[in-house]
Amino acid sequence: MMKNNNSYIEKVYSWGNKWNIFMMILLLAFPFLVSIIFNTSPDWNGLFKGLVATAPMYWAVGVVEVITYIPMLGAGGSYLSFVTGNISNLKLPCALGALEQAGVSADSEEGEVISTIAIAVSSIVTTVIIIIGVLLIIPLQPILQSPILQPAFNQILPALFGGLGVVFISKNWKISIAPILLMLILFIFTGLGSGEVGIMVPVGVVFTIAISRIMYKKGWL
């Protein structure tokens, strides 16, 4: 059975590597194809300035996100999530909810399978809903952009992390107190804005691991 387990995870790495490299080539092919079809090339000056202003920040954030999220998403989930996006606001909460529902640990093989299923289903549903949205964009536009519904769409993250927070904080309350206090202080009193949450995720993760390690060594956990 152990050999079988290893061969499954090895296959996941192999499939994932091939798929992600293929998707990278496909995504990069889009601007090249548009250039060829419409017989144009990028504005090189604009491209250079645009990349200098955009890429370094997003590359840095991307590296930190990969290191932070791989242990939480599992192997299959990571390959899928870093292609389909919306990780912290959709894929990861979805995987966490599924692990909780199934009652399995993230580091077990069952956890790997469950998180892959949840993330794959979430990716498929998202892609299909966007396709429907694009097909029906004209009739849907006034409904989805109506001022009545806007507050609901503006508050997805608080609505998501309220429920998820109760589940995980109640189970791990000892290691939750310090990071939550730290984040409340940082966000309320130091002027951190909503745009900084992506940077604060790895800060929160590293801080919580450090605090947990100290508590574990002292025998408090």
Binding site: T68, P71, G165, K171, N172, I180, M183, L186, M200, S212
Partner: peptide, 16 residues
């Protein structure tokens, strides 16, 4: 360690 990772992420969003 894994619980700490989840809590670290959730705490950042609670702060947000």
């Amino acid at each position: 360690f894994q619980s700490a990772m989840f809590i670290g992420m959730i705490s950042a969003f609670v702060g947000f």
